[in-house]
């Protein structure tokens, strides 16, 4: 596949298929419409990322790196099994993105969600979790320079990412349980999920605080030793 064609597929997916799907969904106006659309949107939005990885210049080294970081972040989820919601996954995804680029960040996030749900239970929420975690990694990769320079910015990013992740989960539950974006139900979910939101946000900040230095040292040493991810 030529790069030009890849671009066209991306444009087609995001600007033709996605609006078409939403239009069709509203036109057919049935039951779990919004939840279904949310899921379909997440799947379609992930396709360009996967295609660009498939056709891009990522070599065996990058693939293994993503594989190891994914396996580690899932293992981290199990390592901290005693503390619910207090997990290092987001921190690991962000750190991977900082040192190995936005693509590695997206894939580590998306694959971590897919793989950890193999252990924790797969469901209709999987595509959405994959996309959200992938996006957290992707944006961290885009902001790599400022986030690496300032520790406060990194902690802030981790906290905000955790809070947004939790809020989107509440939003998903609302759509999933009532079939519409019912504000009172969302508020109920938000209030019920407030402790979880606090723990997720706090855990991201704590993990990044504690782990950013030791893990960052390992990753940057790997960069110089094997010359990975320096091109970006």
């Amino acid at each position: 596949m030529k790069p030009a064609m890849k671009k066209w597929i991306t444009v087609l997916l995001l600007f033709v298929l996605l609006p078409l799907l939403i239009g069709l969904g509203i036109g057919l106006s049935g039951g779990k419409l919004y939840a279904f659309l949310y899921m379909a949107t997440a799947i379609i939005a992930m396709i360009p990322f996967f295609l660009s990885f498939e056709k891009g210049k990522a070599d065996a080294r990058m693939m293994l790196l993503i594989a190891v970081m994914t396996a580690l972040s899932v293992l981290g989820r199990i390592l901290f099994a005693v503390t619910p919601s207090f997990k290092p996954v987001t921190a690991m995804v962000i750190l991977t993105a900082l040192y190995f680029g936005r693509e590695a960040g997206f894939l580590t996030g998306a694959l971590s969600a897919l793989l950890s749900n193999l252990y924790f239970g797969q469901g209709p929420w999987t595509p959405f979790q994959m996309f959200t975690w992938g996006l957290i990694g992707f944006i961290a990769g885009v902001l790599a320079k400022p986030l690496k320079k300032s520790r406060i910015a990194l902690l802030l990013y981790g906290g905000v990412a955790g809070a947004i992740f939790s809020l989107l989960m509440d939003f998903w539950s609302t759509l999933w349980e009532s079939g519409s974006a019912d504000p009172t139900r969302f508020f109920a979910h938000f209030v019920a999920g407030l402790p979880v939101l606090a723990v997720i946000t706090l855990s991201n900040v704590i993990f990044l605080w504690v782990l950013a230095k030791p893990i960052g040292r390992i990753l940057s040493r790997l960069q110089t030793k094997y010359g990975i991810g320096l091109a970006e």
Partner: peptide, 21 residues
């Protein structure tokens, strides 16, 4: 434990990728 595990496994991964290459 987590950083120690990362250091160990990334070195192994680099060996595997060299072998694949």
């Amino acid at each position: 434990l987590l950083p120690a595990l990362i250091g160990w496994s990334l070195e192994r991964a680099m060996e595997t990728s060299a072998s694949m290459k």
